[in-house]
Structures are given as C-alpha cells and as structure tokens.
C-alpha cells in the first residue's frame, strides 16, 4: 500500500497554505493515519513554526535529498501525535537545491516506511518549488481566499494540476482536486462586500471541500505553534475538522458560512 500524496497549494502567497497543511496533517493523524508533512518552501521555512517544532530541527528536506542525512534522522516527531512527523525546509539553501529525482526518492522512502499520507506544503508562486510540491501528488488542496487575485491564481493552479503533474503526464486518472475557501467572512458576504462560496464555486467551476471562517483563533494558534485544528472551541478549528473528514470521504454539511440570525431590533434598524 503506497502513501497518498496530498499537495497544499494556491499560487498566491499568504492565503493560508501552511496553516492548512499543519491542520490537515494533524487532522489526518488524529484519524489514526501515519502522516508526514513536508515544507517545500526552501529558503523560507515556516511549517516548523506553525507546527511548534522549530527548535527541534536538526536535519532538513534538502539534507535528505542530498544524502547528508537519512529520512529517519530528519523527520521530527510531533509532540502531540506519535504518528505525525514534520520534515522541515532548509533555511540556508536556495530553491534549486531540490531535484525531481531527490523528491521522488524521499516520497518513495516514506511510502515504504508505512506512511498513509504525505502532505506537501507548497511555496507560493508557480516556480520550481511549487512544481515539485505538486508533481507527484494524488490529491490537491487548493487554498483560496474570497478575493480577486487569489481566485485568479487558483484557476491558474487548477490548470497546472491538470497538466503539469506526473499523473497527467502518464495519462493516469487525474489528481483529485479539492478547493478550500479560507478567511471567509459571512457578515461581509451578506452585505455584498465579499465573494460568496457560490460565487467562487461558479467562477472556478469546482465545489469547495471546506470553508474556513476568518478567525482570531488562527493567529492565536500560530502564535502558540499549535495547529488551529486542535483548538476545538474555535470555528476555524471545527471547520478544519469537517474538511479533513470530507477529504477522508465522510459527508458533512458546511458550517459557519451564514451570519448568525439577527434579533428584531437589528433587523429594523440595520447594523
């Protein structure tokens, strides 16, 4: 049984790829899967901070690709889940330090090591790092914000996923594409200031696998180095739990996409 490779990508930066990678990997581990999450953003390592393991990085992805460390030496075991591992990006090398053969070997080794899922946290952009992160994927989570530049970039990424991956080149069945809408603010959608879930689905021609509401808890979680999915009281954390369940095949209705019903006075006077 080989590992399922999931790329988390977006094109545009700052939309929530690393937040999503951390929560997705943690959620899959919570479901009992053996999971590795890899930071492909060579030179701008950040997944380690979001996962809260930044002080335990000894060897990184580039060291493994170049044979300077084994995959076992470089994987950092998560503090909270013993079946979850982080592979950090290099902070000192440049993006050319990764090669297609090197990445393939690391993914094969993880597969042979009994991993169920490998989550690849893509860098922003559509250059080498992003290409390598998506190339071997079986599934893609395309993170999009309800904002024009992010929507346009995700359409571009959806096009690349359909043509520039190993599955596409080999003529195999395509990558499973999941659209994840993050930073969603139902109150602004209600007053016409923000694209709705339906708008984004119509423009991109793909339905969402989840909607993560804009939430203060996301910053709090990254401040603390605890993936927001572990904050079970926050709407964002609950929405990520729903999303992971859907990716694992469970049907769950969307939550937190509507404004809470207003009282009578609010309805009369607005606001």
């Amino acid at each position: 049984m080989s590992a399922e490779i999931i790329v988390v990508t977006s094109g545009k930066g700052g939309v929530g790829k690393t937040t999503t990678s951390a929560s997705l990997a943690t959620g899959l581990a919570m479901a009992g899967k053996k999971v590795a999450v890899i930071d492909f953003d060579v030179g701008l390592r950040n997944l380690d901070l979001i996962m809260g393991c930044e002080r335990r990085v000894v060897y990184d992805f580039v060291n493994v690709v170049h044979g300077e460390a084994t995959i076992k030496q470089a994987l950092i075991k998560d503090k909270r889940h013993e079946n979850l591992f982080v592979l950090a990006a290099s902070q000192t090398r440049d993006k050319d330090a990764l090669t297609q053969e090197g990445v393939e070997k690391v993914l094969d080794d993880l597969s042979n090591d009994g991993f169920d899922f490998v989550v690849c946290d893509s860098p922003a952009g559509i250059e080498k790092g992003a290409h390598l992160a998506m190339y071997f994927a079986d599934h893609a989570v395309v993170v999009v914000n309800p904002e024009v530049s992010s929507v346009r970039d995700s359409d571009r990424i959806l096009g690349l996923l359909a043509s520039k991956t190993r599955r596409a080149e080999r003529g195999e069945s395509g990558i499973t594409q999941h659209l994840l809408l993050t930073r969603y603010n139902p109150a602004r959608v209600a007053i016409g200031e923000m694209l709705s879930v339906k708008d984004v689905e119509e423009i991109l021609g793909i339905t969402v696998v989840g909607v993560i509401p804009e939430s203060e808890n996301v910053l709090a979680a990254s401040n603390a180095g605890v993936p927001v999915i572990l904050d079970e009281n926050s709407h964002a954390g609950q929405a990520y739990r729903d999303t992971v369940a859907r990716i694992l095949g469970e049907a769950r209705p969307l939550r937190f996409t509507e404004v809470a019903k207003k009282g009578f006075l609010q309805r009369v006077f607005g606001g």
Binding site: V148, M194, L195, I203
Partner: peptide, 15 residues
Amino acid sequence: EPTATVAKERLRIIV
C-alpha cells in the same frame, strides 16, 4: 452595486 458583484463579473471574464 455591491463590490462583490463587480469582483465576480471581472473574474468571470478574465478567468
């Protein structure tokens, strides 16, 4: 016109 409507129309065309 709500700005979201403008955004949707612009995106529909460019995409």
